[in-house]
Computed example of a mutant assay.
Amino acid sequence: MSDQKDEDVTALYWNNYTSVVILTLVSYEYLLLLEKEVKYVWKRRWSLMTCLYLIVRYLGLFLALIIGCWGGLLYMPQSVSYDLIVLIEWGFSVYFCLGEVILIWRLYAISDQSKRLLYILLGLLLPIIALLIWTDVYLYSRPSSLSVNEVVTPTVTYCSPSFNIGPIFAIYTSIPIICYDIFLVVLAIATLVKHLRERRNIKMRPNTYVIMIVRHHIMYFVLNLTNQILQTILWANVSAPVMSLSELFNDTAPFILAPRLIISVWDTHARETCIHVSTTFADCVCWTSPPTFDSEVELEVIALDSREDA
């Protein structure tokens, strides 16, 4: 009995330490990006990518704050704790889908805005969304698979999640998601290789944003792969330190990385001197090639204007 109490106290300490780190990291990250967010979002005309940025930014902040307060840091009744953990898991799925949409939109941008590719990628995403809905219903919305236990210690009472089935279902559901992410990252790398060959043939330097977006695809793939592995680990009977560290990564890294990947494109654009400005990448992008003109008349007008300025 005393050993069980010691384990409960240890789990409480790990939960509280993890919660403090989550709240600190997310709050600090929010303050770091606030100035750039005001500059690139609130003071400019909104686009689709702007809306996606705001959703992932504040949905992630909302989920991180709930996660940080859940458990032993603040006391919550058992029924409230269960409802919140179900909300958190559904929120994770929504956040993941939004991240995939951002990757698809960026991939569409660097693939000459191919409508066919866009429709194919979105069509392949629909089964993944259906799988996530089934996972949230079967694994996270049933007390028989995921429940919340109220733990009483000599000093405090807190709630702890209980994963009642093994990791086998989580493993099976993660395989299609990982395969889809592999498909996206391979497609992004193939697009980059094609772009580099084309630029080498015409002796022009590669487009900065194509390289950046492919790099973001690789980073996000590594993040999602790690997230799926750690999410599966939670369903195994692991120790409190392993569970807390896994939750620390899952509850901070996606919420920090996704907004940064979006805003870094805007920030890079603002620091460059552009020859030609395009909206191909959903907001603004500097192309390394010179502008093209629709007619010789337009060229003559520009030439005359330049002579008058001289």
Rank of each mutant, 00 (worst) to 15 (best):
V152L: 01
T155Y: 12
V156E: 12
Y158G: 02
C159I: 01
C159W: 02
S160Q: 14
P161T: 04
G166H: 13
P167L: 07
P167R: 03
P167W: 10
I168A: 15
I168N: 13
I168H: 15
F169H: 05
A170N: 09
A170R: 09
Y172I: 15
T173Y: 14
S174L: 12
I175K: 09
I175E: 06
P176L: 13
I177Y: 04
I177W: 05
I177H: 11
I178R: 07
D181H: 14
V186G: 00
V186W: 03
V186S: 01
V186P: 00
A188Q: 07
A188P: 06
T191N: 03
V193S: 00
L196V: 07
L196C: 07
R197V: 03
R200M: 09
I202R: 10
I202N: 02
M204L: 06
R205Q: 10
P206E: 08
N207Q: 11
N207G: 13
T208D: 05
V210D: 10
I211D: 00
I211M: 13
I213D: 03
V214G: 01
H216V: 11
H216P: 01
I218P: 00
Y220K: 04
Y220N: 08
V222G: 04
L223G: 10
L225P: 02
L225Q: 08
L225F: 15
T226H: 07
T226S: 15
T226P: 02
N227K: 09
N227W: 14
Q228N: 15
Q228D: 12
I229D: 04
L230F: 15
L230T: 12
L230Y: 14
Q231E: 01
Q231Y: 13
T232K: 07
I233M: 13
L234K: 08
W235L: 04
A236H: 11
N237C: 08
N237D: 15
V238E: 06
V238N: 08
V238P: 02
S239R: 13
S239V: 07
S239K: 14
A240W: 07
A240I: 04
A240T: 04
V242D: 00
E247Y: 14
E247Q: 15
L248T: 02
F249H: 10
N250V: 14
D251L: 02
T252Q: 02
F255E: 03
F255V: 06
I256G: 03
L257V: 15
P259Y: 05
P259W: 04
P259D: 01
P259A: 07
R260S: 14
R260N: 12
R260T: 13
I262F: 15
S264I: 13
V265M: 09
V265T: 10
V265K: 02
V265S: 05
W266G: 01
W266T: 03
W266Q: 06
D267R: 07
D267M: 00
D267P: 00
D267Q: 04
